[in-house]
Design a protein around this nucleic acid. Structure first.
Lengths: 239, 239
DNA sequence: GCAATTCGTTGATCTGCCTCATGTCTGCAA
DNA sequence: TTGCAGACATGAGGCAGATCAACGAATTGC
């Protein structure tokens, strides 16, 4: 979870990074304050309302972004309207891991979101000049790759029950340690969950109801829940 | 495709990299000959027969590898035996993009394969000392990530017909340019294809038969085919 | 050579999830 | 309060792909 970093004394109080909540988490975390000061000059902070699009797939990849607050979804549409969500971006996550000239996925705000935007060319130059940043980007890419491959297993081989249970565990896993009866809220709709898990919303709804009926989870709102039986949930997620 | 690089005159004739077929393609491609000479000292060449395991999932990630010949599959098993193949590695591909201490996937030889093996610690030190190599690794990771996310769309939202057509296009896409009536051979079994596409072997077999009956492809052997109608194949792959 | 085994194909049937339909809840505005 | 719209839930029936079964064609071992 995004733990607020200590303010950076070397920075001016009005510098946008001064009390950034995700500085340690984000790629910027590896930069020295002096470097950071210059770095952030390169791009403004952008706000997006829920539902707004940050980048369209096939758009020129002119900027890269660091998400400081909110939630994004990365999705792709097939010609007939079928949609697959490849992943969600949480505060601290980086948007723009590619060397292609165009984005491969659409990024949209699921909840109101705040991002630091950097012109791509400038960012690349900055990366080239800062080996620590380059290393951090590689780490981020490796991490995303592992997550995507894990999702391949879910989409290729898991049942609807296993998928929904796995999703609940992913949500719960964002809090360390995972404890039972802790309230976990998720801003995404059933439609988003369905498109992430390769299911239909009716199926997601039914499976959530089943988990609730089995007293494995407890719904505390439309978009929040508690894990009531972690062992059983983990069991259901694997088969 | 692996185009044989020109021999490297600065290297001894008996140096393993002297006439490596994939040197330009692989991560080593960015290294100066003098650096390359030292680099390769660090690890031997390993051979694996078809079916042999290079690394087991959950094994300590003690080595990284560069595939110089053959074909590997990256797979994961669920407790009850269901298997998902996350991807195939072709000559020039790198095995070991992770910062975790354990491998997340099993890597097995689909066909007889040859790999350069490097102790991970030594490799990491080498990467830290060679920014060009670091950049290349990031490029490789970004590329793999894009491929994995594309595969998420296939597994989450495509029909059996679309999946098999997409697979044929992926195979054909490894030859540039894609031309009709060029013989394309693939060393993987129907079981491997099924586990890659999230289908059963019977379904893969039926769909291949259907593509053949529709004269979209032509089978020239058990594990080779020709694209007879590229436009139609692309159409079928998207829906 | 011939059995034994593995791999791929094809047919018949079954089932998990999708599709379609309808109902319920919540938030918001009048 | 009522009415409305959007999101979510639930029921009934259908279908794509899984499962089960049988067979043919390569490959391997003797």
């Amino acid at each position: 979870m995004a733990t607020r970093a200590a303010p950076v004394p070397e920075l001016e109080r009005d510098h946008p990074c001064f009390d950034c909540a995700v500085r340690e988490l984000a790629v910027c975390g590896v930069l020295e304050p002096a470097v950071l000061r210059d770095f952030k000059k390169s791009g403004p902070i952008a706000h997006y309302a829920a539902g707004e699009t940050v980048v369209f797939e096939a758009d020129a990849a002119a900027n890269v972004y660091s998400l400081t607050g909110g939630l994004l979804r990365l999705s792709k549409l097939l010609p007939d309207g079928r949609r697959q969500i490849a992943g969600f971006l949480f505060p601290g996550d980086f948007l723009g891991i590619t060397l292609e000239e165009e984005h491969a996925f659409t990024a949209e705000a699921v909840a109101p979101s705040t991002l630091c935007r950097f012109p791509r060319r400038q960012f690349d130059a900055f990366v080239a000049a800062n080996p620590a940043l380059e290393r951090r980007l590689y780490a981020v890419a490796a991490h995303e790759l592992a997550a995507a491959r894990q999702q391949l297993v879910l989409l290729g081989r898991k049942t609807a029950t296993e998928r929904v249970a796995s999703f609940m565990l992913i949500l719960a896993g964002r809090c360390h340690p995972i404890v039972e009866d802790q309230d976990i809220s998720f801003p995404m709709s059933r439609a988003d969950i369905a498109d992430y898990l390769g299911l239909r919303i009716e199926t997601v709804s039914r499976e959530i109801s089943a988990l609730k009926a089995a007293r494995v989870i407890q719904l505390t709102g439309r978009q929040s829940f508690r894990v009531a039986d972690l062992g059983r949930l983990e069991q259901l997620a694997e088969g």
